[in-house]
Write a protein that binds this DNA or RNA. Structure first.
Lengths: 166, 166
DNA sequence: AGTTTAAGTCAGTCTTGTTGACATTCCAAG
DNA sequence: CTTGGAATGTCAACAAGACTGACTTAAACT
């Protein structure tokens, strides 16, 4: 299984082969990770980009377009297309900022929240089952490695989001 | 009692919030994970699709087109476009099968291996540094959760690949 | 001989990313 | 107070990479 002894000196023997296994695990796992929401969205006129936008608007209601595009790591033009369809379809509401009228603050409508729930229920179910299968200690390790894998900038944004959540 | 290790029961308290943090960690980490190869490929006429093809051809030299497209989870038309440019540019060699002449067996040329090394060096460096930062126990947990997150079919393919490697 | 399989091709569509150009709003320096 | 730059968001056009569907070729299987 884990080739070398799980925990101890094995780090010193980090072979390219072990690293490549990690790379492939990441690739295959990400496919599983996105599979359920993708399936749900397939029928509708939406894709993964819509899912991500909905997720983070739900996470931080009232966030601005600028905030969102930094989180998502896409250009504002790219995000705008997605956002426009979501607003047109009545899933997202875009309110002109009070203090700064250049800003648009984004909120999910009830319909938007319903879709968000549907999508994240599916994704959470998979995450939950993976967590259960692997056990609590594995989960802690999982999170540690993922955090270490992020770019510094994103890591800070992730941590801010995480700590604001609970 | 079944030794309730540190956090033994915490699985029972898996809140939606904890799961969502895992989901977001996965999202941000994957961005970091692909960032370096993407940067390298940006200048060239290649993208992430070419990287994946090169990776798995290197991993399993002589693999067939059909094998590859199952691993990658794309259609043959999609893979073919990528493969054609790689063959044209002399990075991949496609040999007619000996036993079954319908099959094409794929190999990296020297130039292909050079690019593979360049890409995977970058990706391994990030993986290595994440592993080092998180520690050996975390790495074991990371791998366990990732495996549990894969679709059953892909998990089998991943494990076959993994066990063939070393 | 007839069917199935492996691979490749052509055409068309969709999602999602990109640049470039532009409008609006804010703010600060003259 | 005005004016010019910076920030925010929108519109338009394009490219990469995925998809489906229809078709061809060659080889293998039955």
């Amino acid at each position: 299984m884990m080739s070398d002894a799980p925990g101890g000196e094995s780090l010193l023997f980090l072979t390219d082969e072990q690293l490549r296994q990690g790379i492939e695990a990441m690739f295959f796992a990400y496919r599983g990770f996105t599979a359920d929401p993708d399936r749900i969205l397939a029928g509708m006129a939406y894709g993964r980009a819509h899912h991500r936008a909905i997720h983070f608007i739900n996470r931080a209601p009232g966030t601005t377009v600028n905030n969102l595009l930094i989180l998502l790591g896409v250009t504002k033009q790219s995000l705008n297309r997605v956002l426009r369809t979501l607003v047109e379809d009545g899933l997202v509401e875009s309110k002109v900022g009070k203090a700064d009228k250049r800003e648009r603050h984004l909120y999910l409508t009830e319909a938007g929240e319903a879709l968000e729930r549907k999508l994240s229920d599916a994704q959470r179910a998979r995450m939950r089952s993976a967590y259960r299968a692997a056990g609590p200690q594995a989960v802690a390790g999982f999170r540690q490695v993922l955090e270490a894998m992020m770019d510094g900038d994103l890591r800070r944004k992730y941590q801010a989001l995480r700590d604001s959540g609970t």
